[in-house]
Amino acid sequence: MVNESDKPNDSRPAADAPVRRRLTDNQLTAVISGAFAVLVAVVAGSFGLVGSVGSSETAQPSVSQVPTIRATESVSPDATPVVDGPLVAAVATVDNHCRQTWITDKSPAEIPNPSLGGIHDWVEALSAVHADSRGVTITVNATSEPQVVLRQIRAVVVGTREIPIPGTQIGIGCGEAISYRYISANLDVEPPAMTSATFGEAEDESGVSLTPIRFPYEVDTSDAESFYIEAQTSRFDVYWEIEIDWSWNGRTGTIRVDDNGQPFRVSAAGNVTARCYWSETGVKIDSFSESCDL
């Protein structure tokens, strides 16, 4: 466990890093198969969630769904899967421009118009940090039989919470309504509060489930589970990771998941000096923008 007094940095000690081992062909195939179905659901806005911060007496069955792909999310390139004990976890960052903004140290005049088809590349080129919230999808399945029980999931703050970063807040307006369920992680409190939450009001024809998420869940070599976590802060610049407790074959343990070897990061937008918002066609939205002289 990382102490709150330790300051975040770009490289953590090797002892704190997740165990990363080469997967066998069968293990890698299982990860890719499970992750692919999940990422299709993520891009579609349903986020394919079958997990929860609540608890129930028995493990819940998996739910398979392949809804229609929407154009409001972009998924980051796949990170190296994390292998720990009987589990393997794959991570994807979801940049949903209907819900997400970012902070860049560039001035408004230095920021090019966004490309709706390349949001991830646009954000990367600006070295932007997620503002106020950051969503990640974690796909978990087993590396061997019998089934592994996922007991609980939590966010863990890495290092010291700092003051929010300055810069320009950037975002893209969106008029499309989507509904999904997720795990909200409040990073402003210690330990971070994990809550099952929903966005939107009703289930629709795409098969989106708004049923509260409840643990435990079971995974095996052919049946993965996915969890969409939306970490939020209104007060700090925060580095964080995800831990999942498991039990299997009389053993217990915890798998730690991060951003390809580095902590995830999100900063509150309270110290920005400008705000620039564009429509989906690349036109600046003056009513939402502040001090945005392009």
Rank of each mutant, 00 (worst) to 15 (best):
L150V: 06
R235Y: 14
I172G: 02
T195W: 01
D220K: 04
A131S: 15
T160D: 14
S144I: 04
F215H: 03
T143Q: 08
I183M: 11
I172A: 06
G167W: 00
G167M: 05
I165N: 05
P164Y: 14
N186T: 05
G135L: 03
I163H: 13
H130W: 09
P192M: 07
G200N: 04
T195C: 02
F227M: 14
Q152G: 06
A142N: 03
I229R: 04
P212T: 05
V129F: 05
E145P: 06
S222A: 13
R134N: 10
T160E: 15
G159W: 03
A231H: 02
E205P: 00
I165V: 15
R154F: 03
T211H: 11
G171N: 10
P191Y: 01
Y180A: 03
L150Y: 04
I213R: 07
I170D: 09
S196W: 06
F199P: 00
T168V: 07
P146Y: 02
V140I: 15
I229Q: 04
G167F: 05
A142V: 10
A202E: 12
I138Q: 01
V156T: 11
P216M: 13
R181F: 02
A202P: 03
F227C: 05
R181E: 01
P164L: 14
A177W: 05
G207K: 06
